[in-house]
């Protein structure tokens, strides 16, 4: 039954991907990308990867779509039509596809316990997590503690991406601040005149942010963690920006605060690592943070997840504002 459902979802994914490539209306393509991410999230969930599914749904289907729409507002709605068929690229794509399909013949079957991925370090993680860290969600234990270096690297990737986007797009900030009484572009008003979406949206925002905090601090016990929580809180604030207009959202969470969040979260993560060295352990060794090594691990994971959540939330909001405040060219 699960296999049938997964095959159904994967078939839909293929159709969506083909439709994305074939359409030349970029708005349609953006919507289809959102659907693609949602299908992908459902597929992850079918495969019991609830953490990944949550991330995909929040970032892929939610925030990426908003960012694409923000970028689309700055450019044209239609793709430039290409009349000539590019035979070389077509050939490369076909050859790569055939190689990839051939490679799948060598793959182990779905859920095969003899598959190499289940023979390597995974059994060790599963056995040692209750002893060393004692939290129910092994995924959080792996991401936060066993693979803490990787997560620190991922966080720095997000930090770098945010800095890069701000360097490219954030240069012309402050052009239409409301203080000088200048007429704002119509998009800056948001949905202020539409009463029903506004009321319902404002009603939903506190619950969205609360749910984000739940995901943040419940990550040790259920699916979730800093990445998902940051994205959900950011989507709540982006909803506020869409409803009340750009400037109101910037008043609620000003740019300096956003910058502080982006940098502070990454520093918080790094500081936990340094604290490990100072207290006599290795970098990112949380065992020395408390009297009891297991308690220390739990404390360390809680703090680094908080750092991840703060940075992700700040970075997504900064990128959104960078797109939204830029005037159309």
């Amino acid at each position: 039954m699960v296999v049938l459902f997964a095959v159904f979802l994967l078939t839909l994914l293929v159709f969506t991907a083909v439709a994305i490539v074939r359409t030349d209306n970029l708005f349609v393509a953006v919507m289809l990308t959102g659907i693609f991410s949602l299908l992908m999230a459902a597929n992850f969930f079918v495969l019991d990867a609830a953490d990944v599914a949550l991330t995909e749904a929040a970032i892929g289907a939610g925030i990426t779509t908003v960012l694409f729409l923000g970028a689309l507002a700055l450019t044209a709605e239609h793709e430039k039509s290409v009349s000539t068929v590019r035979w070389l690229s077509m050939g490369v794509v076909i050859v790569t596809t055939l190689i990839l399909i051939y490679a799948t013949f060598e793959k182990p079957r779905l859920g095969d316990p003899q598959a190499p991925v289940h023979q390597h370090v995974a059994p060790w993680y599963l056995e040692q997590t209750p002893e060393l860290i004692d939290i129910p969600n092994v995924v959080t234990a792996i991401l936060g503690s066993f693979r803490g270096y990787d997560t620190l690297g991922e966080l720095n990737v997000i930090l770098t991406a945010c800095i890069g986007v701000l360097f490219i797009l954030g240069g012309r900030r402050g052009k239409h601040l409301p203080s000088d009484g200048k007429v704002l572009p119509s998009t800056a008003h948001g949905l202020r005149r539409h009463l029903i979406p506004k009321v319902v949206g404002l009603l939903a925002i506190p619950f969205i942010v609360l749910f984000g905090l739940y995901i943040q601090f419940h990550g040790e016990y259920g699916p979730g963690g800093g990445f998902q929580a940051g994205a959900i809180v950011a989507s709540g604030i982006i909803l506020y920006a869409l409803l009340e207009g750009e400037e109101k959202a910037l008043q609620a969470v000003p740019r300096p605060v956003l910058m502080g969040m982006v940098i502070g979260g990454a520093i918080l993560y790094g500081a936990v690592g340094i604290a490990g060295i100072v207290l006599g352990g290795n970098f990112l060794d949380y065992s020395v943070l408390a009297d009891n090594p297991v308690k220390g691990q739990q404390l360390g994971i809680l703090i680094i997840e908080l750092g991840v959540g703060i940075t992700v939330c700040g970075a997504l909001l900064s990128i959104f504002h960078a797109f939204a405040t830029r005037e159309s060219v």
Binding site: L191, H194, I196, P197, V200, A204, F207
Partner: peptide, 16 residues
């Protein structure tokens, strides 16, 4: 409750 709140709102926003 969430779906009943957001679904009709989305339809309204789209039609509007």
């Amino acid at each position: 409750a969430f779906l009943l709140l957001t679904g009709p709102t989305a339809s309204y926003a789209l039609a509007n």
